[in-house]
């Protein structure tokens, strides 16, 4: 089955791509570039860097813009998926949804309307076990956005390590912060992994942070041979 993956470049969509590639053919990655930094549906920090990630994994990328207005952005998503169906012949869509019924239901309805399969291979996964699995499988993940108390700016740019996962687990127990950022508390970017033919290297970046909301802006990066 030829599949298209809704791809933000964060850990969830990259790991969903990884699982899809183990079972089926991933014909394309689909990225919605939202102009709304608080989009309900789409990951936004450094979203324009998915082109380098797609090149690193060797899969074509279909990029579409969206204003990111609630519900209207779903029409843009549907148009992008339809574009992937027409251009790459995909028969199904893969998402990295874990807990969000909001995102899952809307994607399911779009796929249903377009007569496509819908796969959510991370659905309801134990989040701490999943973070550990990312490390075990060799993914290099950094935190590119924090959007909740008690995250300070030291988290921005931090690499996901065993020690980092322990701290996230403690925050989950103490503050009920979703360890994988499923509630929008965290955004991540994947720089390397088992499906990457080349790894990504950040050459220049900057931070913006205020009141427990911060972003790491990747200003320059390149692909490096592994």
């Amino acid at each position: 089955m030829k599949l298209g993956v809704l791809f933000s470049g964060g850990k969830d969509s990259v790991f969903a791509t990884y699982r899809a590639m183990q079972k089926n053919q991933v014909a394309c990655l689909i990225t919605l570039i939202s102009q709304n930094p608080d989009s309900y549906m789409f990951h936004t920090p450094n979203i324009h860097r998915t082109n380098l990630q797609a090149e690193a994994v060797g899969i074509p990328l279909l990029c579409r813009p969206t204003l990111g207005e609630k519900e209207k952005e779903l029409e843009d998503l549907a148009a992008a998926i339809k574009g992937a169906r027409d251009e790459y012949g995909i028969q199904g869509v893969v998402t990295g949804a874990i807990e969000s019924v909001y995102q899952a239901v809307r994607t399911q309805r779009i796929c249903q309307a377009l007569d496509l399969w819908c796969f959510n291979p991370l659905w309801q996964i134990n989040q701490v076990d999943y973070l550990r699995q990312l490390l075990l499988e060799g993914f290099q993940v950094i935190i590119t956005g924090v959007f909740a108390y008690p995250f300070d700016d030291s988290w921005l740019g931090e690499e996901l390590t065993a020690e980092c996962i322990c701290r996230l687990e403690e925050l989950w127990k103490k503050y009920k912060v979703s360890p994988s950022g499923e509630g929008g508390e965290l955004e991540t970017m994947v720089l390397d992994g088992p499906i990457f033919q080349k790894r990504l290297e950040i050459l220049r970046s900057s931070k913006s942070y205020c009141n427990y909301r911060g972003r790491l802006f990747i200003e320059e990066m390149r692909l490096v041979d592994k």
Binding site: A20, N120, P121, W123, N126
Partner: peptide
């Protein structure tokens, strides 16, 4: 057998029961 859907419809049930 061993489809991509298994992660979505079988593994969550298994995780809950094992937990």
């Amino acid at each position: 057998k061993e489809s991509l859907s298994m992660y979505e419809f079988v593994h969550p049930i298994a995780d809950i029961l094992m937990h």
